[in-house]
Design a protein around this nucleic acid. Structure first.
Lengths: 110, 110
DNA sequence: CTCGATATATGTCTAATACATACGTTTGAC
DNA sequence: GTCAAACGTATGTATTAGACATATATCGAG
């Protein structure tokens, strides 16, 4: 089972973190694993996801040259992003219910 | 959000049903929605999944002409399939934990 | 000066699945 | 008997998320 992908945690995870405070990609990459319970997240996919979300108006970004270190693009959640996060929240609860149903059926048969 | 796909419920759902009793695709298609909490499952993908699982030795099948109605291919779970289901069970519990973590964080920030 | 950490980005591949459609058989209604 | 609906299996194709690889540039420590 090589491609045992998870279940859409990237976008909701990013939005959840950005709702707490605006920050940049590298920070998000550092914080995501603890939030979604994985050992690592794919760096490239995070930046892609961020730009994708920006295109859809869920976040805005700007270069923050004043901070130390290499140039960082700081992302900030928008109202539309907050609404999207609401929908994700709902979706996640549904997902959990479905998993629970399936697990219950599995445990039943033993 | 057009392609709001779920998260890997097809294979574990099929294996779960087949563990309870051998049956054929059409039956599985009828029973899956209740098991995984969706309104419908994709018919084509079910048959594809079944044949894929057969290739990997998780199930066996044979045509059952004796039953009434059109020819049915009856599937039966194998020991390897039962082991795969065990792994799915573990995976589903992990998935649920991750979802719970994320949901908790979401609820926290409000 | 060089090395490692910081930071962003693109390219490519695959697996899962959404959506569409085809096709043969059987059964029941009329 | 024929017609439609249900039964049952199957293929084709597009989209998408995520896995894996790699490129590139800056900065700080030693």
């Amino acid at each position: 089972m090589k491609h045992r992908r998870g279940f859409r945690f990237l976008e909701p995870g990013l939005l959840a973190l950005l709702r707490e405070r605006p920050t940049h990609g590298y920070e998000l990459i550092a914080e995501l694993p603890a939030l979604v319970g994985t050992d690592r997240v794919d760096v490239g996919n995070v930046y892609r996801a961020l730009r994708g979300m920006e295109e859809r108006g869920l976040v805005t970004s700007e270069w923050s040259d004043e901070l130390p270190g290499p140039a960082k693009r700081t992302y900030e959640i928008t109202d539309e992003g907050r609404r999207a996060l609401e929908r994700w929240s709902h979706w996640l609860r549904e997902a959990r219910n479905r998993i629970d149903t399936l697990i219950a059926r599995l445990d039943e048969g033993r």
